[in-house]
Computed example of a mutant assay.
Amino acid sequence: MGARMMRAVAEAMLSLYPKPWRERYGEEVADLIASRPARVRTVLDLIKGAADAWVHYRHVPGAGGLTVPLAAVLACAGAGLWLLWNPGVRDVASLHGVWAEAASLGPIAGKMRNMAQTWFVMAGVIAVLSVGPLLHTCLAAMRRSVHGPLTRMTARRVIMTAALLVVPVGLVGLVFVNLAFLDAGYPVGPLGEAMVGGFHVPLIMALVLPLPMTAAGAPSLGSDVRGTGQILASAAICNALAWGAVAVLLVLGLEKASWSFVAMVALSALVSVWMAALVARSAIRRGTTVMGLLSPA
């Protein structure tokens, strides 16, 4: 068990290399790892090699201009969302004032609040469930010898990545539930409870994205990768619809909102919707590209 785990860790280190390098040497190195006992030294050598490949990126065959990694873009967007949430929570007067003004106009405020919470919850659940078919396929691929070494290795990496992501996804989801439905000790009020999902759902989507992106290392898994992306697109749509309900609440109580609060909510909505759409688009495009590799020339 220890040897197999060490081999899985060594195989996972290949994801640290630039994409052009993986396309040129990835399968060859993966076969080499699978044919030899993996040790700690093997993992350290792979990490060192990855660092060297990035330092000498322009010398990698097929490498074009160096672009900002998707992971870095999503990390910055996620950090930006949480930074935007902080001033919103601190503007207690606007949070409660907008809700009070909207609620005074009739039951529409309550309906919009419930709608926003429902759409955000649906988006989060859909995002988590989107990787279900992919994980099922990977588990089956690991058990069947008919699959090639690249598919089996990629399937192991996907399962290992999923195990590592369970905790962070669960923590983000728990924070969302505490703020939206439980007494978490924050004076967010009904308006804050309605829009808090928009600050967490894109993070959940970004956290599950490594699974289809890892699976894209095997062309035989391309259809599952694209399928995951299509389901994530549904989560992105739910996220956008929820922000629409929040926008209605903001318009109804606009007289009680400060200009900085309105700007914060508007910017948060834009970042949230863009980030969720980027996650879905990335998975769909990667799956489509990988499936193209299986098509006859």
Rank of each mutant, 00 (worst) to 15 (best):
A297Y: 04
S272H: 01
I231G: 01
A53D: 04
A93N: 02
A116S: 12
A141M: 08
N239D: 12
W259R: 14
P87D: 02
D52Q: 07
R286C: 13
E193F: 04
E28Q: 15
A277D: 10
T154E: 07
G62Y: 06
M13H: 06
A233D: 01
V55Y: 08
P69H: 15
L95K: 04
L14H: 03
M160A: 11
L182W: 14
V121K: 00
S268F: 10
L171G: 15
I237H: 02
L44D: 02
P133W: 00
R4A: 11
I204A: 06
A235E: 05
A283H: 06
S94W: 06
M205C: 08
S234Y: 05
R39A: 14
G192K: 01
P107C: 08
M142N: 05
A216F: 07
P149K: 13
V188D: 05
R144I: 01
L66N: 11
E193I: 05
L252G: 03
G292V: 07
A34F: 02
A236W: 03
L84A: 07
G197E: 08
L129I: 09
F176T: 03
A127S: 13
W119K: 09
I47L: 11
L174G: 15
A297G: 07
Y17T: 00
L241Y: 09
A100G: 02
L267A: 15
G65M: 10
L203W: 04
S223M: 02
G2E: 09
I108A: 14
M13A: 12
V121F: 10
P18V: 03
L32K: 11
R152T: 05
R143Q: 14
H59L: 15
L278Q: 11
V188A: 07
R90P: 00
K19C: 03
V9N: 01
L211R: 13
R7M: 13
T151S: 08
W21P: 03
T118G: 09
V43Q: 01
V128C: 09
T42H: 00
A277P: 01
R113Y: 00
N86P: 01
D91G: 02
V146R: 09
A257F: 09
L14T: 05
A266T: 14
W85F: 13
